[in-house]
Computed example of a mutant assay.
Amino acid sequence: MSIKRIWKEYKVAYVYIAPFFILFAIFGLFPIAYGFYLSFFRWDGLSAMHFVAFTNYINICRDPLFWKALYNTLLIGIIAHIPILLGGLTLAFVLNAKLVRGKNLFKTVYFMPMVTSSVAISIVFQQMFGNNYGVINWFVSLLGGEKVNWLGGDGSLIKVAVICMFAWKWTGWNMVIYLAGMQGISGDIYEAAQIDGAGQAQIFFRICIRLLKPIIIFTVIQSTIGMFN
């Protein structure tokens, strides 16, 4: 194959992938670069722009609300990652081991939160954790307890609601990815482990988790991005 022909095939390939890079440059790369550029100016969007260098960064580092918001984000994300990772791994293993029937139904039900509108999810969780008419407080009242002000007070209990919502949304996503990874593991490994007398718990911890380490790292990164978003 001549060099001229190889170059021609490369140009055809670049033509096919060009739409993605063009759209990414316009709607992905440009907003990031322009936003970074604007961070060195004081501008209200209407009047003239004034260059202030690093003043905006200095002001935000001096703002206690910024550090409080960052602390809350990290705290919620770290705690929520526990049920997200463990729940996703457990559900994927149960479905992969065929311990339950209707696997496709369970995958659809657990993946549904990922395709649900964020606005709809917020409304549902507000109704669940509402002070006067919330579903959770209704159950608490049935058990003889006092209503809990989840969304008010000093704001400390709001973290519980956000963690529940965050975990509920991302667990199904991780489950599907882990399930795909487990199905990529050769069935001979599972059969060999069962012949050697390994139980489901040993297969889960000594085979699945060890072989899924790259996928687990990927899901942690994805969940972290979602946390900050």
Rank of each mutant, 00 (worst) to 15 (best):
R62S: 11
S47M: 11
A69Q: 12
F139W: 12
I121N: 05
I225M: 14
V52F: 01
F205S: 12
V115F: 08
F129N: 08
N229M: 12
V176D: 02
G181A: 15
L85G: 00
N96I: 05
K98R: 13
F54C: 00
G152E: 14
K4Y: 07
I163V: 09
K169G: 04
W170K: 09
T116E: 06
S118L: 12
Y10W: 11
L86V: 14
S2G: 15
P31T: 01
F205T: 11
F66H: 12
G152K: 11
D154S: 15
N131R: 11
N137G: 01
V148D: 07
I32W: 13
M49L: 14
K213H: 04
V115T: 15
M49W: 11
I215Y: 03
F204V: 00
S39L: 00
V15F: 15
N174G: 12
F30W: 13
F139H: 09
G184R: 00
V160Y: 15
G181V: 03
I195N: 01
S156D: 09
L142D: 06
Y57P: 01
W173A: 07
W43N: 03
N96F: 09
M112L: 15
K98P: 05
R5D: 10
I26W: 09
L29K: 14
S118C: 08
F20W: 15
F228N: 08
M112C: 10
L151T: 01
Q183G: 13
V52C: 05
G145R: 09
V176C: 03
I78Y: 02
I217N: 10
I6S: 13
F66L: 13
F20L: 11
W7E: 04
V94E: 04
K68F: 13
R5I: 12
M175N: 05
K147R: 15
L179Q: 02
F27E: 06
